[in-house]
Design a protein around this nucleic acid. Structure first.
Length: 303
RNA sequence: GCCGAGGUAGCUCAGUUGGUAGAGCAGGGGACUGAAAAUCCCCGUGUCGGCAGUUCAAUUCUGUCCCUCGGCA
């Protein structure tokens, strides 16, 4: 099977990735690989494409998930793979846009076909985590899967819980499963990395938060709260959502919420930059160099 | 003006019964395979408000001055 060609645009939040995708040409269809822009209730706060941008080209996997539903890397990769095949069948160019490095990696390199873990197993592991702490789970992981235990820290509650629930739920270790990772179908990707200096990006991120508030971010959160009052729901854990929720519940002032939102956004952009530095085969472009990106993609498609 | 409470890391504050100090947050670096906008790891010298006194030794005790915040005038 001939590999399907796709373009991926990754980079930190607030660097014009959506606009870059649209500048690549008319036969482009945009596919989201951002873990937060999937939520239907937060189009403003998660910076989903504007209606103007949406009218420029077909967009996929934006704003389709309810606040109380969770997404994960494997599921997102599956959905993206389906979208890519449809777009390819139409003769258009799939352009993947997003900021969640893990989701892109899983799409391109595949993920192990681990079955769903029974709810009872999940719950009991989480209860143990709360009762005994991540270190207790880690000791167990050291016993059953020393190879994986060696690469995660004993304080890492999420990864220790995951390793243990997979072992208890499937009878196989996570290392064992990971060896089976493979992509859904052959892909050939041209990866565009948007380059920015964090110090230059910081004031732009702050300004963007003010824009979001002007566009009605607070009202958006208020409406979401009416639909989904559970503060622990997956959708509320996004940056901006969590801070506005705290304000709406009377825990902090709006000014304070804005401050924390700004800091968290910056810290997130920093983590994204760390991820991008490690990404292989990345073609770096300055933010806003749409012409350079379009030319490079054109040359790649011909070659 | 008087009476209290304070002035310690970029911020909020611990602390030292006298031996020059440490948390959280921020900041920097990193990890990352089914929660990833998540989760986690590493990195802490700062006239301990100024000056003087006591002392082998003061950020710590004493005096004084400056500043901030309350209350009373």
């Amino acid at each position: 099977m001939k590999p399907v060609r796709i373009v991926c645009i990754l980079g930190p939040t607030g660097t014009g990735k959506t606009r870059a995708a649209l500048s690549l040409g008319q036969s482009v269809e945009v596919v989201n690989f951002d873990s937060r822009q999937v939520y239907a209730d937060f189009p403003i706060i998660t910076a989903q494409p504007s209606s103007e941008e949406l009218s420029c080209a077909p967009h996929h996997l934006y704003g389709f998930l309810a606040c109380d539903q969770s997404m994960n890397a494997a599921r997102m990769a599956e959905l993206a793979a389906d979208a890519i095949q449809e777009i390819h069948a139409r003769g258009n160019l799939p352009v993947l846009v997003g900021g969640t490095g893990l989701y892109l990696r899983v799409l391109l390199e595949g993920i192990a076909p681990i079955p769903d873990i029974p709810e009872a197993v999940r719950r009991s592991v989480l209860e143990r985590l709360q009762r005994e702490g991540p270190q207790a789970l880690h000791r167990e992981v050291v016993r059953v899967d020393p190879a994986y235990a060696a690469v995660i820290h004993e304080n890492d509650s999420q990864r220790n819980a995951r390793a243990l629930e997979v072992w208890l739920g499937t009878g196989r270790t996570l290392s064992d499963w990971h060896a089976e990772a493979r992509p859904a179908f052959p892909l050939e990707a041209f990866k565009i990395g948007v380059r920015v200096d964090l110090d230059e990006l910081t004031p732009r991120l702050a300004a963007r938060i003010d824009e979001m508030l002007d566009m009605g971010a607070l009202e958006e959160a208020r409406e979401a709260l009416a639909k989904c009052p559970d503060p622990k729901a997956p959708g509320w854990s996004g940056i901006g959502c969590a801070e506005l929720l705290a304000h709406l519940r009377g825990e902090i002032s709006l000014e304070r919420a804005r401050d924390i939102w700004e800091r968290n956004t910056r810290a997130y952009a920093k983590r994204q930059l760390t991820w991008c530095r490690k990404e292989r085969d990345l073609n770096g472009f300055e933010a806003g160099d749409f012409m350079g990106m379009a030319q490079a993609v054109g040359a790649w498609l011909k070659g």
